[in-house]
Amino acid sequence: MGGLCNHALELTGPTGNLDSRVHRLDPRAKILGLITVTLVAVSAPLERWPAYVACAAVLVAYAIAAGVGPRALWRRLRVVLLLVLGVGVLVPFVRSGGARFEFGMLSVHQAGLEIFAAVAAKAIIGTTSAALLGATTTFPAVLRGLEALRVPRLLVLIAAFMYRYLFVIVEELARMRSALVSRGYRPRTALQAGAMGRVAGAMFLRTYGRGERVYLAMLARGYNGTMPQRVPLRLVGTDVAFVAGVALIVLTARLTTA
């Protein structure tokens, strides 16, 4: 139970050199800088490939400055990236156009390969940006940053509650699973999987009940429908320089013709 959560925690909290200059940047600066990198990569067509190189270079520099090693980064990336690339790899087989390459029964076209290359580059850069943000910023700090960047408060609130209760729910699920297994539940056929459906139903009711109790606890402390405003964050010169530097590098690479 605890182990499950600890494992999940390893993948969410900050890592690397926790006292690095990157870790100490204002969360807004990190969010803006990394979003710029992602947007530039996503918007760049394959002919503008130097933009991909610039984005990748910025991310590598960021990771090195933060002391986030390739292994730590890969542990976080593989969760999303393998899935995205797994889907992307099908594209060359269905898209036709340009030169044709035969591999036994399968054939791919150049147009398909180009799309795959672009999708892969964008996916890797986008996912790495997100993973690096998570590796250098605590989740509460990201939320504060988003709030300060005027992301709708309701969305930030939903994300905050999700983060707070994810572990509680995972623990409850683990307990229910243990209870099933302790009573000899070992599904062998699809028909016996019905118990899992009832677990899901019970989970829904439990989380619903918890939602009600949390709401009561909020009301009891004077909640009146709007979350109170926190102490504002303060941007310093380094934060501005970071965003400006990142934007300058990637936008220059994106906008100049190769």
């Binding site: 939320l143 905050a160 707070r164 209760y165 918890r210 109790r213 949390v214 009561l216 909020m218 009891a220």
Partner: peptide
């Protein structure tokens, strides 16, 4: 009011 289950009471990050 302090509720019985602290997980209900503590809802902020």
């Amino acid at each position: 009011l302090v509720f019985q289950d602290p997980d209900d009471q503590l809802f902020m990050p």
